[in-house]
Simulated scan of single mutants.
Amino acid sequence: MHLPSVSHRNAVNRILRYLKSVLGKGLIFSKNGDLQVVGYTDADWASSITDRRSTSGYFTFVGGNLVTWRSKKQNVVSRSSAEVEYRGMAHEVCELLWIRRLLTELGFKQEKPLELHCDSKSSINIAHIPVQHDRTKEKIEKKIIHLPFVKLEDQLADIFTKAVYGRVFHDSLTKLGLVIYMH
């Protein structure tokens, strides 16, 4: 804000063009009785044909309401689909922990473990192996994070990592809480 440049103005113009194109669309937030923090994560192994890097994405819900989402190409080339899924899980664990800390600072202590839904059984198994100790495994051992397996057809984060059929895409948008208002 102190030294705006042409690239900043271009970014603002891009945001304004996007907002203009999505008039009548929005997210519904509703009171659901609790503030359970739940995430969905997915990754697509070596999806870029130019550099073989993978894309990972996640959605985060608080009290059943969508609050954060992200899709990003990973910084490294992974050797297996399990590795790429595990890397994606680690990014969402950081997001879940940040939201947990924020809620705690606002006076809403989380009693239940944070849930991270993943459709990769091998990545979930890697996360439970106590041999290597990283932050993700530590949070699982302390029961701060719970990793339930989610079936492929219930994996919301798929729309960030791979092409899906139109019906699946629109069903996912409904599950995410996106609504379209008619003018």
Rank of each mutant, 00 (worst) to 15 (best):
R52M: 08
N75S: 15
L23W: 00
H91G: 13
N65M: 10
F59V: 02
L16C: 07
I28Q: 13
T50M: 02
L96G: 00
L96A: 05
T104Q: 14
V84W: 00
L96R: 01
T60F: 02
R70S: 11
Q110D: 06
L97T: 10
A46Y: 04
R14W: 06
E85P: 08
Y58S: 01
A11D: 14
W98V: 05
V84M: 11
Q110S: 10
Y58Q: 05
A43L: 09
W45T: 07
L23E: 11
Q74F: 09
K109A: 08
F29W: 11
S81N: 13
L102T: 06
H91S: 15
G33P: 12
D34R: 04
V12D: 12
I15V: 15
D42Q: 03
L66E: 05
V62D: 01
V38P: 04
E111H: 02
L35W: 13
V62L: 09
G88C: 02
G64I: 09
S80Y: 09
D44Y: 00
L35P: 00
K109V: 10
L19E: 04
Y40H: 12
R100C: 07
R79T: 15
L23F: 02
S7N: 13
W98R: 08
E95F: 01
S81C: 13
S30T: 15
S30I: 12
N65P: 11
S7G: 07
Y86A: 12
Y58A: 00
R70A: 03
T68M: 02
S30V: 14
R79K: 14
M89F: 07
E85C: 10
W45E: 02
P4C: 12
S78E: 10
L114T: 05
I99S: 04
R101C: 12
V76I: 15
R87I: 15
G26K: 09
G33V: 12
V84I: 13
G88P: 05
F59H: 03
S5E: 15
G33K: 11
G57F: 00
K25S: 08
Y58N: 01
I15T: 06
T60S: 07
R70Y: 00
K25G: 00
G24Q: 10
V38W: 00
